[in-house]
Amino acid sequence: MSSLRQRFPSAWRLVATLLLLVLAVALSFVLSPLDDSKLAGGAAISIVILGLSWLIGWSGQVSLGNAGFMAIGAYVTAIWANHHATSPIVWSLVLSTVIGGLSGLVLALPATRLRGPYLAGMTLAFSFAVTPLALNWRGFTGGSGGLFINFLSTPAWFGGLFSGPDALIRANAQWPADVTLVVAAVAFYFMANLFHSRVGRAMRLVRDNEVAAELSGVNLQRARTLAFVISAAYAGLGGSVMTLLSGSVTPQTYGLTLSILLLTLMVLGGIGTLSGAILGGLIYSYSDNLVSLVNKVSGINPTSTLGANLKGIVFGVLLILTMMLAPRGLVGAGAWLRRAARR
């Protein structure tokens, strides 16, 4: 088995991705419509987390601005859908990914010359700028009201798979979830190959030892820029999927808070890993359930000021606990537990 894996790594990853996709789609048939929509949201966010994880975990650069790239992808999809209502959604996805990547290139040119807090500061400024820009550029963005598009229409053949009184509700909830899962699978497969490619190895060397990277023939500036572009493209794709799922885009959605949430989810799941990004997406999906549980256990009134801010507090506590107890995230903790069990 392992020799097959070594001899045909790309085919192996394809089979693994397809198996996971089939499992996830099968799960979507079992889940309730509410859980299907949570699954879809988690899958969309996991694409963005994966892009961020690539940037931070593999190239060693920090970004507090990926929600801004998400906004660009989200608006591109909404604008495109409003002008080309009948075009296949794949065009929206591709266009948002490409324009997300190009906007990443524009930011990368100055950003990749900076390090540590200076780089974080620059991406932070970008994140701050996105919401006011979207609010004021009304002709394109619809201002504070945002833009609305039609929800993904469920094809007849898919609707035919369901029967019973709630067939339509189930089909309409599940179709977007399954489409999102397919998009996420493509994104994860591409990234899995990138991790193990020459580019991935170069990126790791740039992160760990710049001098060794240069001596191995790696152009540092080009490598860092490429990492930024790919990360922004993933954020653009994630933003596009979010717009398709919610049927709208508003400037307030993609502010600094979301950028920080993405970072938190990435750390909770595990930096620089595929499974960490999936876990981050799942945590995002079920964070409301977790907050409800904390509400119930602590007796905090959800309508009080404390209750309204409980989500931020819960995430903050989780982040601190993860940093202290499992610095490599839940993925790292899982690996540690497996090793401990073997001993």
Binding site: R198, R201, R204, L205, S216, V218
Partner: peptide, 15 residues
Amino acid sequence: IAELTVEENLRLGTL
């Protein structure tokens, strides 16, 4: 790179 295996280190040389 201490955190990489011998083979992973060697692969870096082929960039």
